[in-house]
Amino acid sequence: MLRLEGLKKRYKTGDETLKGVDLEIPDGQVIALIGPSGAGKSTLIRCVNRLVEPTGGKAFLGDLELTSLSSSKLRKARSRMGMIFQEYALVERLTVMENVLSGRLGYVGFWKSYFRRFPAADVHEAYRLLDRVGLMHMADKRADELSGGQRQRVGICRALIQNPDLLLIDEPTASLDPKTSRQIMRLINELCEERGLAVIINIHDVLLAQMFSQRVVGLKLGEIVYDGKPDGLTPEVLTDIYGEEDWEATIEKVEDEDGEDDESGEGGEDGENLEENAALGNLT
């Protein structure tokens, strides 16, 4: 469970990006954080694992207060929080396997990790996760040989092998095409359900947010302006979050839950992709 109490962040430039955010996420809940660029979505999740140092307020992971930890305790706490990045942020010149195993760095000493001697259980788990996301055969490929969707799946494995209590996900689909975006979101959802994780997903795409979350939080200029069910996102609410726009096309009822399991992009789904692109276009 994650709890934020009046979390604030003011950058050196003087911009107050977070103006005291209160938020509670119980285990097993996937929340989508939406809002325009500059609303503070990225800052919010980076303040949780303190990649960005908050300037006020508190964050608790279970009973542990994250905001006051010393740097060595912070490392231990970070290993309980998995993070997935917008541009995948894989170390491109390392192999897929090394990237996945790097999720265990918080648990393994320096020399062991330097000589790539990870415990057998970690290696086993890494293979299991790679197999789970369908990348078993890529284990010894270098990360820069992979496609965008494949890289993001490696990123997911890296976060999950940490065996986290909480997942922080920053724009997981921003660099992916609509179809791959859905596959990735579905994968994240399934995996979190399997483990009962608390999850925050920053996302630009309102349609995806509605499809793949149980709760939506709208952020605007560092403040929460909406917190509720996905289907409560009416045109009025979206106007409040993003500003004036014709929202009807964006929130029309989504019934796209048929499996899109095959990887190849060809087939009779062009029409559907176009529709999604139109929806994406509305938000950018």
Binding site: E87, V91, L105, Y114
Partner: peptide, 28 residues
């Protein structure tokens, strides 16, 4: 690329590990 370093940092890696996994492979 600072993102790659940040990602390693987010796993709870120590300073030396951040160097070995996040920075050295990029400059080798």
């Amino acid at each position: 690329d600072h993102n790659q370093v940040e990602a390693i940092e987010a796993t709870g890696a120590s300073g030396a590990q951040k160097m070995a996994y996040g920075i050295v492979p990029q400059v080798l």
